[in-house]
Design a protein around this nucleic acid. Structure first.
Lengths: 66, 66
DNA sequence: CAAAAATGTAAAACATACTTTACATTTGGT
DNA sequence: ACCAAATGTAAAGTATGTTTTACATTTTTG
């Protein structure tokens, strides 16, 4: 799975730490998701999508190997 | 978080076991998600939503306590 | 009603998410 | 070039997701 969080953050001009605080997780959690080091829970995905006002599918995309 | 999987299954008329096979997880995984006993990963949510041709947000909904 | 199919649930084992702390590296502004 | 802010990364610990096996209960169908 891949994601567009970095791009969406750039559009909204917020840092990883700010996004983390908006969602209620640690900055490292955002960082590792953004770096594709792990797959977040659906709750986190919904919250992230909500911050960016976009559907989950526009931010997180399945890949062939998923 | 709550979900509509049971309703969507009913619309499509498929069993838990069939949904599980379509997605590539065990039947118990579907059963426990459906019973709100745990929150699936974003990969699973995307796959489930894809099976039902609906956005993730229509199948999984955040609650106040999330 | 009886048999079969579907669903609920539970325990153990394993895999993965998430936090915290800490530090190194990179980027941006002056 | 310097300083501050932002980002990358890593290790240890905790929490939670997922599988497998197994069995009980409920629902469906003949």
């Amino acid at each position: 799975m891949t994601n567009n969080i970095r791009v969406e953050r750039a559009i909204k001009n917020i840092t990883q730490a700010e996004l983390a605080e908006l969602i209620g997780v640690s900055r490292q959690t955002i960082n590792t998701i953004e770096s594709n080091r792990y797959v977040p829970s659906t709750i986190l995905a919904l919250k992230i999508a909500r911050v960016f006002n976009k559907p989950v599918e526009e931010i997180f995309k399945l890949e062939k190997e998923d």
